[in-house]
Every structure is written in C-alpha cells, then in structure tokens.
C-alpha cells in the first residue's frame, strides 16, 4: 500500500513514548498538513522548548527536525538521557 500523501493532502502520524513529557505513553494520532516535518510535529505538540534535548525516532530511526513525514509514520519523542 502506498502510504505517501499527495502534495497538500493531510497526513496522519502516530506519536508514542514521551516519558517525562507529562502525557502517558499511549499512542496518539496527529493530523498534519502534507509535507510536514518533524519540526512541524514538535510545534503541534508544543515541544518547542529545549528541542536540542529531545530524541526523535521516526520508525525507529533517529530523525532530525527537517525530516519530512509520511502518512503512517510512527514517531517516538523522548528527552535524551541514559541509564545508570
């Protein structure tokens, strides 16, 4: 199935994870305009404070702010940290 949105067509992505960003970790669906990027998603989620501290994984792979999103993408958003 081709999940790519046509230009201008809204896309639906899934956002998961986010311990420490208050919300629980249940998945939530976010509708974005076609051509939206990771930065657009962060803005929609009001995660614009200290974005340099965030780790964003798109389908399990690290994604930077400029990455364009596709319909059906799953994104995980975390603060960058390590275990001890």
């Amino acid at each position: 199935m081709d999940t790519r949105a046509k230009p201008g067509e809204p896309i639906l992505v899934t956002v998961r994870g986010r311990p420490g960003i208050k919300e629980k970790s249940e998945a939530q669906q976010v509708r974005l305009p076609g051509g939206a990027t990771v930065a657009d998603l962060l803005a929609r989620l009001a995660l614009t404070s200290r974005p340099e501290e965030l780790v964003i994984l798109c389908n399990g792979v690290r994604a930077e702010a400029g990455r364009k999103l596709a319909a059906g993408d799953t994104l995980w958003v975390f603060y960058a940290m390590s275990g001890g």
Binding site: G17, P19, G60, W76, F78, Y79, M81
Partner: peptide, 25 residues
C-alpha cells in the same frame, strides 16, 4: 533548567529508559 535533570530523572528515574530502548529496538 534542564528537563532531564529537573523532571525526567526525578519523576521516572532511569526506568524511563525502558521506553526509549524499546523504541530503538
């Protein structure tokens, strides 16, 4: 001022890493 040290570690401890590593495979 840092989210990790001000919020994440105090609230969830290092166990917050479970979700992160699960997401990373």
């Amino acid at each position: 001022e840092t989210p990790q040290t001000a919020e994440v570690y105090p609230e969830y401890g290092t166990a917050a890493m479970v979700a992160i590593l699960e997401a990373m495979g």
